[in-house]
């Protein structure tokens, strides 16, 4: 049996209408304790209205050393941006 408490990532919605944002991490024995600790550590001054916690080991992250291959396809498709299309100045509201 593992003795050390696992690591959890904490996401907080600061107010309704905004997305949850990564706030940090903490150790806890289980999800319930992770939520309670997250409340005590990250929302002592009304920083949040909703908290998500997820055990860090379940997060799959991209590798920055492969950023070239990973994000290059987005860069060379300039036609996805409005500025790619040349229109006469007289055209308004577009």
């Amino acid at each position: 049996m593992k003795k050390e408490w696992p690591l959890w990532e904490v996401f907080v919605r600061s107010k309704n209408g905004l997305e949850h944002r990564h706030f940090g991490s903490l150790h806890a024995a289980d999800a319930e304790m992770a939520l309670e600790n997250a409340r005590d550590v990250y929302t002592r001054r009304n920083e949040g209205v909703s908290i998500w916690v997820v055990e860090s080991k379940y997060i799959t992250a991209s590798n920055p050393s492969e950023n070239g291959e990973m994000f290059e396809p987005a860069k060379n498709k300039v036609y996805r941006h409005p500025t790619f299309y040349k229109l006469p100045d007289e055209v308004k509201h577009m």
């Binding site: 049996m1 593992k2 003795k3 050390e4 408490w5 024995a29 289980d30 304790m33």
Partner: peptide, 13 residues
């Protein structure tokens, strides 16, 4: 305390 919390968590799982 840390060990008990971990044992409890494992039991729940």
């Amino acid at each position: 305390v840390r060990e008990a919390a971990m044992a409890h968590a494992n039991k729940q799982t």
